[in-house]
Write a protein that binds this DNA or RNA. Structure first.
Lengths: 343, 343
DNA sequence: ATTAGCTGCTAATACGCATTAGCAGTCAAG
DNA sequence: CTTGACTGCTAATGCGTATTAGCAGCTAAT
């Protein structure tokens, strides 16, 4: 059989014995126009719509009116593949929740290139199918961001973004202050020689952690070791740590912290007995590791929610788009203790 | 700021001194048509396009072509909330992958009601926005399924479904044979008195497990205990297990198995030393538990992929829709051992 | 000299919907 | 009995593109 033809308003109209225009009016006419269609007719049309399951074609709708209550979600990495799933899922949860409240559907922009090479503006940008879009990913393509900013298509980024030919609307986590608070906490516990395991940039997320860290130094707090590469062998890190005399290590990556902790335990060292460890961010599935690291919380769901809400405001009221940083509350954890005098 | 009007082919046409149709042809005319436009004209048009940065409006493009390359994904429970996330994610991974290959976007049907009360045909449902849709969920609404089957809207279910006024197109896992294989394996290891912890229905997924189990009985294999409710206290289950003389327990729910295993260990019992345990299905994050249960694998990603591919075929070639069951390979695990003679 | 075929285009239409102008009928007021 | 207001609808148009039919002008063959 050939592809079943889509129902159109015309079909509905014929079934209800009215004109296509009337069907459209019943569906979404202005109150003034609706007032002129008697209850009886309206119900007849509604009835046909209900029994047929007709829904307006979003494409045509968008053509005619420019809006279709669809939000695009563009991810710079495939959204679900396991490695990424853990990363995107909490955001999507928040996004879905808010979208539902606002009565928008979500369109996952998936086809825009394969694998790593995802480009928003790939094939003549199917982006515009949606009324606006959310952009997420660890690292953005700067050129595309610039193009987005300069265009008139509403979007909101999740995660803070540096200006790109203009301010980028975003909802991010305040990693800088989250980090600062943890550094100060360490200071209050008597730590003065600190280690930082993680790059100082260039992605905004890492840059912010570093700037928060760096800004909290002084006042007797001193950076004695900085390992910029992630994924170094745990032993190496451990050795460097002790060689430097640091009493507390700040990790950008949970994975590094986990490996170092394991290595330390293997050497008979205890955390925070022998040294303290702090993770700069909350990580999904952290509960899987045995240790509850001292860290700060990243309100991912809330970021998703607020970004969605902002996007809807941009779409519906043409609001200019703001930059919001959500507080990252500290997570107590059990790996930050008083500084230990090393002999 | 007012939205700067988008460039159209009409504008390009005027600038190049040709008609709109010519512009369209230059952009994507069939070779036969293109052959009739001289190089010179083509270049003039291209030039204008390049200097203006014109890009065809994808919406209008889809409108004209009649397909919108969108696949709907309907979930009977919200897709991301943490509890469900683990359940849906692997399917979505496969779906996303295949959709990307086929160059379709995914529309998450989110607005279709809140919380538990999701209905495909809910009022104002926007299912038909998509060219076709995938339906997933633990349990389906039978009435809705019937309606879907009788309609001409292309869809594919994930997970086997009983006929609903006609055969339901699906891609599922062959739980019955997966279960049967495990039962036979237990038999080969000398087990003869079996326990089954889980309901015999009504959902297809549980019914299939039960029927596979039930069908493998006989030949010296005997069901000596059947606990139909899930979530019973672990102690109770353990007591019943020993009271019945069963040497191996088949669990529908991993959670039950985990709890019973913990309770057993607390009593100083070992698995599979003192009794064996088998889980009927693979469960995401199983690795979190300490024990690797003997089970069968559910190829969730592959199910997602194949369902998506089938749906695309239905949409594009009007194919009738099949019923596919994917093999569920056994997972060795460490909880199924030789039957122990109980004293 | 008619026809046939080619070249280089364009006009016209369809896609499905939203929206506006306006038509035919009724009814009340003047 | 005319005017005006109101009711209940519909015809017509536009959105930006793809596509098909076909026109005008020319050449070459019959």
């Amino acid at each position: 059989m050939a592809a079943p033809k889509r129902l159109t308003q015309h079909d509905i109209a014929k079934l209800a014995g009215v004109s296509q225009a009337t069907v459209s009016l019943v569906l979404n006419g202005a109150p003034t126009a609706l007032a002129r269609i008697p209850q009886e007719t309206r119900e007849r049309v509604q009835q046909v719509i209900r029994t047929t399951g007709y829904v307006a074609d979003p494409i045509a709708r968008r053509m005619a009116k420019g809006l279709n209550r669809i939000l695009g979600v563009f991810t710079y990495e495939p959204a679900f593949p396991s490695a990424q799933a853990d990363f995107f899922t909490p955001f999507l949860l928040g996004i879905e929740e808010e979208a539902q409240i606002q009565n928008y559907d979500l369109l996952l922009l998936t086809g825009a290139g394969v694998g790593q090479d995802r480009k928003i503006f790939a094939d003549g940008n199917r982006l515009r199918i949606a009324d606006g879009c959310l952009v997420l990913g660890r690292e953005f393509d700067r050129a595309e961001l610039t193009r987005l900013v300069s265009g008139d298509y509403p979007f909101v980024a999740i995660g803070r973004r540096e200006d790109a030919g203009g301010p980028v609307p975003y909802v991010g986590g305040d990693y800088a202050n989250g980090t600062r608070a943890l550094v100060e906490k360490a200071g209050a516990l008597g730590h003065s020689k600190l280690a930082y395991i993680g790059p100082p940039g260039p992605a905004e997320s890492t840059a912010d952690r570093w700037s928060g860290f760096d800004g909290a130094l002084g006042n007797g707090l001193e950076l004695v070791l900085h390992i910029e590469t992630v994924g170094r062998a745990a032993d190496e890190i451990l050795d460097a740590l002790f060689g430097s005399g640091a009493t507390v290590a700040f990790f950008v990556e949970l994975a590094d912290a986990v490996r170092v902790e394991a290595a330390a335990r293997a050497c008979g060292l205890s955390i925070p007995g022998d040294f303290s460890a702090v993770v700069l961010g909350s990580h999904i599935r952290a509960e899987r590791s045995h240790v509850q690291f001292t860290a700060f919380d990243i309100p991912r769901e809330e970021m998703g929610r607020q970004a969605t809400a902002m996007l809807v405001r941009r779409i519906e009221s043409g609001e200019p788009g703001q930059q919001i940083l959500l507080t990252c509350e500290p997570v107590e954890g059990e790996t930050l203790g008083p500084a230990k005098r090393r002999t």
